[in-house]
Design a protein around this nucleic acid. Sequence first.
DNA 1: GTACTTTTACTCGGATACCGTCTGTCCGAGTAATTATGG
DNA 2: CCATAATTACTCGGACAGACGGTATCCGAGTAAAAGTAC
Lengths: 160, 160
Amino acid sequence: MQMKTGVEQAVYATFMLSFLPDKAVLPGEVISQRIGASPTYFQKLLRKLVSADLITSVAGVKGGFKLQRRPEQISVYDIYIAIEGQQSLYTSNGIIQDMLHISPTTQCCLLSDLMAEAESAWITVLKKETIASLVQKFHTATYEQEIDSFHRWLEEKTVY
Amino acid sequence: MQMKTGVEQAVYATFMLSFLPDKAVLPGEVISQRIGASPTYFQKLLRKLVSADLITSVAGVKGGFKLQRRPEQISVYDIYIAIEGQQSLYTSNGIIQDMLHISPTTQCCLLSDLMAEAESAWITVLKKETIASLVQKFHTATYEQEIDSFHRWLEEKTVY
DNA sequence: GTACTTTTACTCGGATACCGTCTGTCCGAGTAATTATGG
DNA sequence: CCATAATTACTCGGACAGACGGTATCCGAGTAAAAGTAC
């Protein structure tokens, strides 16, 4: 039970796109290269973000990806759902129905409520962090030189 | 990212054992049969619970499993850890280090703190529910007839 | 110089292969209660 | 009747096969900007 690495990659891809100026885009291969992911597979992740209306895509030459919403309106939870899907962390297997010889259609799982509550607490934390708040934390980091270098690289790769 | 079914099975196995009288045990195959799991694989789960000191085992004829601690002292979280292991839900892949070209040994993941907080909130909920509290909820259910039937079956299979 | 065609650089989506993990099965070994055997 | 041996019913732990999902790769199709071409 581990979170997919794709979620982390998607978060940082969205994070990266948040630095783009308006109307500018970044090709998928550029993003994947900087993140260190396999280009073709990473494009699938980007398309999941597109389907979730978190980013948009521009086809053709000078095409690429850019944010669809403002960074304050994209939470880590949004990205998590876009990549992992909406299935919950726990789904009952109806074991207690087996134990008591009750019809499987009956709703009486002792764990479902608990697990739902636990997942809700987990989600709450993921919802309160947005791309914008991540950027804020990023700038308080002590890596000004690397951040500058990153910004220069980004500007070089940006497509207008 | 879904919880293993083994966790649910282990919870109900522990739950089942909590109804045993002192000194009595229940063979692993009896438990697995009632839960509807494959006997040989389920024994592996039981042994994980033994390793975690949640239950104890008795070898030989008239052997089986019984609780090691009192039901109030076995939380759902204990069982979860026993089955899934202690690895956390999220482990950083060092993507931001790749992005910024920083040494991978550097600790600067923007997500780690958030994910740790989220997991902590999740764990808190799982810790507060114990086998004892599950039994309590169980008895408030409206399946008195099935519960009676279950108790009779259990007594029949109990090994003293 | 304008209209048209070709090239180029992207996204899009399906098909497929790889690989690690969870699940399931088999086997031999150890253990202890029961039963059988021998005197 | 008692001591010892064999049987039985369990747990224990390793080895291994199958299924599934996440990861990765390839390919053809669509799209739009840029470049080339014809008149």
